[in-house]
Design a protein around this nucleic acid. Structure first.
Length: 263
DNA sequence: AATGCCTACAACCGCACTGAA
DNA sequence: TTTCAGTGCGGTTGTAGGCAT
């Protein structure tokens, strides 16, 4: 959002307006949205003198802002390498994957998404992922939701990413198999009972764990092929899970609802 | 057109950690 | 060893803009 799009203002009795300022022991400190002028001052100052020592920087630059505010503004908005725009499918998969390993370690997750800030990732999680949990009436930290993320949502994103890249590069060699029977090994065992897995085995579905819970390793960052286990989805978006987990209506229902809320 | 609700995201807050004095 | 300023992180809040009614 552009700095000048919204200005938190304090209406005065006279009808004039002014930016919010708060008096503290260091003088008047401005709060609220940054103006274009402030952005220019901060950017120029950092370009000339470098960043760090934010409190001193704020004073030297003549900004009526706290050091914290300057730092945040620089890191989350003004930094030249900050990426703006929608979170891509690939980035979504990475976020879901890393969050499943590390939880709310936003800055750690952000390290693996060049140009994205922890704030942006946190916002994505709260607005998109938490919303999903709300729609399904379950806790975002519950096991079933976490499993659904990993074994339903991520494969779905993966499938979309795959079909997008296929449309863009129809002749390119695929990095992963489009054969659902091989990509479908599915950590489905997370959802299914042993007898279900036996059924899967009988149907020739390979069951293995692909994504290791190894801290610090991100499949997207070390050129490993994405191989998230995949619950195969038909053209209608319906789940073959029905046939695989046909003795557990609750799980099938949950997964079905999950996919439906993603549409 | 007006109103209210919802979403996305920028920004703030409090706390914890770190390193220098 | 203690103190304190600076910094980083995660949680929360405020609000512009979009959308439905």
């Amino acid at each position: 959002m552009e700095a000048n799009k919204k200005n938190k203002v304090k209406k005065l009795g006279s009808g004039s307006i002014e930016e919010e300022e708060v008096e503290n022991d260091k003088g008047m400190i401005r709060k609220g949205p940054w103006s274009v002028e402030e952005d220019v001052i901060l950017s120029n100052y950092v370009a000339t003198h470098g960043d760090g020592r934010w409190n001193a920087l704020a004073r030297s630059a003549g900004l009526k802002r706290s050091g914290k505010s300057c730092r945040l503004r620089w890191l989350n908005y003004l930094r030249p390498d900050v990426r703006r725009g929608n979170i891509t499918l690939h980035e979504q998969i990475t976020i879901l994957d890393l969050h499943s390993r590390w939880g709310n370690r936003w800055s750690k997750i952000a390290e693996h998404l060049p140009g994205r800030t922890d704030n942006e990732i946190k916002n994505y999680w709260r607005t998109r992922v938490s919303k999903q949990a709300r729609q399904l009436n379950c806790d975002v930290n519950s096991k079933i939701f976490r499993d659904a993320l990993r074994y339903v949502w991520m494969p779905l994103l993966q499938e979309r990413l795959q079909s997008n890249s296929q449309m863009e590069h129809p002749n390119a060699t695929q990095a992963y198999s489009s054969d659902s029977s091989s990509s479908a090994s599915l950590g489905i065992q997370q959802f299914c009972s042993e007898s279900d897995q036996q059924v899967m085995s009988n149907h020739g579905v390979l069951v293995h764990s692909i994504v290791e819970d190894e801290p610090g390793i991100c499949p997207s960052m070390n050129n490993e092929t994405f191989e998230y286990t995949n619950i195969p989805l038909g053209d209608s978006g319906d789940l073959m899970l029905e046939s695989l987990c046909n003795n557990d209506d609750n799980i099938y229902g949950f997964c079905h609802d999950f996919v439906m809320t993603l549409e």
